[in-house]
């Protein structure tokens, strides 16, 4: 019987699991420990629902509703001096919760503080663009769409950014295998030579340790050159890399170690 492999998360799994092992947690502390963060949180709480808030590794994490994302970031930017959006992206929780988590990493240069705003959306749900507030979200949201398929509303140019326009699938989803699917495997062959060339070019070699010493298609054989695809399992011709005649060619001298002179005195 084949072992069951889950289809909703095809990423690499640890082969060793310990039933009794309890993963430790990175320490979280209450927001009230830090006066600056507490004031920021109060400002958010005054207008919006805050689902969760804590400080982890010196940064405040605030979990909000997904439809508040624009308003909360606007508040942080205009009133709380978080003038830069350093990073935003999504995390795929489809396998466990059926949701994407979206995080916005904000930076306040005046206060030297960093805040992470997080929210969750369903798989088919769209999220509001924050491109009007931070121009950099233009590209980040495109990247998020490209990698996860999270659609962003009110975005000026919702197209793929890293992958080609005609790509199929969203690479960073957990259902997408690391080495790509069938479409990815033949992408360049289909595009350049056409589907009919698949048989001639052959499948990709994804085994990094594979070496075939009789392979005359993939390896240049300097000194033993044969035409492309020749069978050499019965021995190969010796074609030394030398000039066509042994005595050298016109104006090119062979280096002779016997005749070489080491010049010790440069003013000789």
């Amino acid at each position: 019987m084949r072992a069951y492999t889950p289809k909703d998360n095809v990423q690499k799994k640890s082969y060793y699991t310990d039933r009794f092992w309890v993963a430790p947690q990175v320490a979280k502390s209450a927001v009230s420990d830090d006066a600056v963060f507490a004031a920021d949180l109060d400002a958010i709480k005054a207008k919006f629902d805050v689902l969760d808030a804590y400080i982890q590794v010196d940064q405040m994490v605030v979990v909000i509703h997904a439809n508040d994302n624009y308003a909360v970031l606007e508040l942080l930017k205009n009133e709380r001096e978080y003038t830069q959006l350093s990073e935003m992206s999504a995390i795929d929780w489809l396998a466990t919760e059926g949701k994407f988590e979206i995080f916005y990493q904000m930076l306040s240069m005046a206060k030297r503080k960093r805040v992470r705003i997080k929210c969750k959306i369903d798989e088919k749900e769209a999220i509001q663009s924050v491109e009007k507030l931070f121009r950099c979200a233009d590209w980040s949201e495109r990247e998020m769409y490209d990698m996860f398929g999270v659609v962003v509303n009110n975005h000026p140019f919702m197209k793929r950014i890293l992958m080609p326009d005609d790509w199929e699938g969203f690479p960073l989803r957990k259902t997408y295998p690391l080495q790509g699917d069938e479409f990815a495997a033949w992408y360049e062959v289909d595009k350049i030579f056409g589907k009919e060339a698949r048989e001639i070019i052959g499948p990709e070699n994804r085994d990094p340790a594979r070496i075939d010493r009789y392979d005359t298609k993939r390896f240049a054989r300097l000194g033993h050159e044969v035409p492309f695809g020749t069978d050499i399992s019965q021995g190969e011709p010796d074609t030394p890399l030398v000039y066509q005649e042994q005595k050298g060619v016109f104006m090119v001298d062979k280096f002779d170690t016997q005749k070489s002179v080491v010049i010790s005195d440069r003013h000789r």
């Binding site: 997408y176 690391l178 080495q179 350049i192 990709e204 070699n205 994804r206």
Partner: peptide, 23 residues
Amino acid sequence: TGGMFNTYATVQGVDRVIPVDLY
């Protein structure tokens, strides 16, 4: 051969696309 980037986005060796003389 694609080297360490054994992923969806890399061509696993340019010899799939153009003929190569030296590796």
